[in-house]
Design a protein around this nucleic acid. Structure first.
Lengths: 210, 210
DNA sequence: CGGCATCCTCTTTGATACTG
DNA sequence: CAGTATCAAAGAGGATGCCG
């Protein structure tokens, strides 16, 4: 992209991350940690493959992403954020908070992947009983599942993919899952609107909005 | 811009403010409050006039900007941020903090306007003697001057333009002004590097990095 | 003047096909 | 799997024209 050519911190930041798709790629890397080209492409429906390659090169040149050749049995290139790249989390969080109200009126034509829940869940969801035994909750509501784990200090971590024998598994339309995890609607209400929960339903009560 | 088409808060935010120049225009409106088309164009060197008009229309349609016909003697259109637009300040701040380190190695070809200092100054600069008499400091280091005012609670406000009889006036190269206000270099050091201060030099000591 | 609209060129993007 | 290559369409940038 052409530089704004302004001696201003905002302009300089946008010179680096202001292009189309760039912050979306950073989102994906924040959620997934080290991952493959194909994982990124799957997590970014709509991106053209040449653009993904080009952005990854730019991000690497700017020092926000590192690539490494993983040894067998993986035998592929892994992309991950550098420290400098991870510092963009505050930017993504601010944008996500600002954009959250826009989710209330979807057009109905959007793609949805449940792993996108990972960042807001890390930000907003609290474990109300940190001293109780650790639990894992799997959410499947489109695309790859995401697993939410208590960590013992009141916060939670997330990972893309399933884990064996989670304490509970959630399924249902995006709007309902979002509303439930954001604390906007109750469990009973969510079930009326299509939420399916298998496993230990009590773990649901343990999570609540921040 | 084409929508990302993803049911994700970040994607929805970028659908609205992700286009080139959009956040720069918001920066300008945050700094200046209500202002004219021409003020915006002057504060955004490099923007094409048709793009500014187009972005203002998009921002208005999205509910981030309102326009009003000011009565005589102004007799012109004033643009200002709506409440929803102002909420983007957290996004701009996060981007500015992330981008600040990039200011350390300028290419030397950048344009510089001292009023761009307004946002970082509001964020970082503290009044160390809030109970002392209010003071006003004018900074001129390219483009329009900016005036920093103590407000009595330890924070400061800024306004674009000069004010009559400020307590002190600063002049000098951008790097030096930036370094001084960020607390990276001392007053004596700044003066060696070209800082000029007229008026009451003591007011300078009153301001320090947060 | 202030606030655009038009026209034109150049760059970026998006979609798809192909390759080591 | 991890990209290139190609090409049409959309967007950005610059100059200039218009109209109250």
């Amino acid at each position: 992209m052409k530089s704004y050519g302004q001696l201003c911190a905002l302009a300089k930041a946008l010179d680096v991350v202001g292009e189309r798709w760039t912050l979306m790629i950073v989102r994906e890397l924040l959620i997934r940690g080290a991952c493959r080209y194909t994982d990124l492409r799957n997590g970014l429906p709509g991106i053209a493959t040449n653009l993904l390659a080009e952005r990854l090169k730019e991000l690497t040149d700017a020092g926000l992403v590192s690539r490494e050749a993983a040894p067998p049995p993986i035998a592929t290139t892994l992309f991950r954020l550098t420290e400098r790249g991870k510092q963009l989390e505050s930017v993504i969080d601010a944008l996500g908070r600002w954009g959250a109200p826009l989710l209330a009126r979807p057009t109905g034509t959007e793609v949805y992947c449940s792993h996108w829940l990972a960042l807001p869940v890390r930000l907003y969801v609290r474990d109300k009983s940190p001293s109780a035994r650790p639990v894992r909750l799997e959410v499947r509501s489109g695309g790859e599942p995401v697993t939410i784990e208590t960590v013992g200090d009141g916060s939670v971590t997330t990972r893309v993919g399933s884990v064996e024998a989670p304490d509970a598994r959630l399924q249902g339309p995006p709007q309902v899952i979002l509303g439930l995890l954001a604390g906007k609607i109750g469990i009973a209400d969510a079930q009326k609107k299509g939420l399916k929960c298998e496993g230990d339903r009590k773990v649901l009560r343990r999570f609540g909005g921040q």
